[in-house]
Computed example of a mutant assay.
Amino acid sequence: MIRRARLLAVVVLVACGAVTVISSTQTWLLAVLDDGGAHALEVAGAAAIPVLAPLGLAVLALGGALSIVGRVLRYVFGALTVLIAVVLGWLTAQIVFAQPVGAVASTVTEATGITGEGAVADLVASIALTPWPAVTLVTTVVLLAAGAFTLATAHRWGGTGRRYRTEDAPRAAAAGSRPHDAIDSWDDLSRGEDPTTRPLD
Rank of each mutant, 00 (worst) to 15 (best):
I2R: 14
L7Y: 11
L8P: 01
L8N: 04
A9S: 15
V11I: 01
V11Q: 08
C16Y: 05
C16E: 11
A18Q: 01
A18R: 02
V19P: 04
V19T: 09
S24E: 04
S24H: 01
T25F: 06
W28K: 09
A31F: 07
V32L: 06
V32W: 00
V32S: 12
L33E: 10
D34V: 08
D34H: 08
G36Y: 12
G36C: 13
H39A: 05
A40S: 15
V43Q: 05
V43G: 03
G45R: 04
G45D: 00
A47K: 02
A48N: 00
V51Y: 01
V51N: 00
L55W: 00
L55H: 00
L57W: 06
A58N: 02
V59Y: 06
L60A: 08
A61F: 03
A61E: 00
A61I: 01
L62I: 15
G63N: 06
G63R: 11
G63W: 08
A65F: 13
L66T: 13
I68S: 11
I68Q: 08
V69I: 15
G70K: 05
V72Y: 07
L73I: 14
G78E: 07
L80D: 08
T81V: 07
V86C: 08
V86N: 01
A93N: 03
Q94P: 02
I95H: 05
I95R: 01
V96R: 09
A98V: 15
A98H: 14
G102R: 05
A103W: 01
A103Y: 04
A105W: 03
A105P: 00
S106H: 05
S106E: 03
S106W: 00
V108S: 00
A111E: 08
A111Q: 06
T112G: 01
I114M: 05
I114Y: 02
T115W: 07
T115R: 09
T115H: 06
G118T: 09
G118W: 03
A119T: 05
V120W: 02
V120N: 02
A121T: 09
D122G: 15
D122Y: 10
D122K: 15
L123F: 05
S126E: 14
A128M: 10
L129W: 02
L129I: 09
P131E: 05
P131G: 13
W132P: 07
W132N: 03
A134C: 02
V135E: 03
L137S: 08
V138H: 03
V138S: 09
T139E: 03
V141M: 10
A146Q: 09
G147P: 14
A148S: 10
A148I: 15
F149I: 12
T150C: 11
L151K: 07
L151Y: 13
A152F: 13
A152L: 15
A154Q: 12
H155Q: 15
G159Q: 01
G159N: 09
T160V: 12
R163T: 10
Y164V: 11
R165S: 13
D168T: 07
R171Q: 10
R171L: 14
A172H: 03
A173T: 07
A173D: 11
A174I: 02
A175E: 03
A175C: 04
A175W: 06
A175V: 11
G176S: 15
G176Y: 06
S177V: 03
A182I: 01
A182M: 03
A182K: 07
S185Q: 15
R191F: 12
G192V: 13
G192H: 11
E193K: 14
E193N: 11
T196R: 11
T196P: 05
L200Y: 10
D201Y: 02
D201P: 12
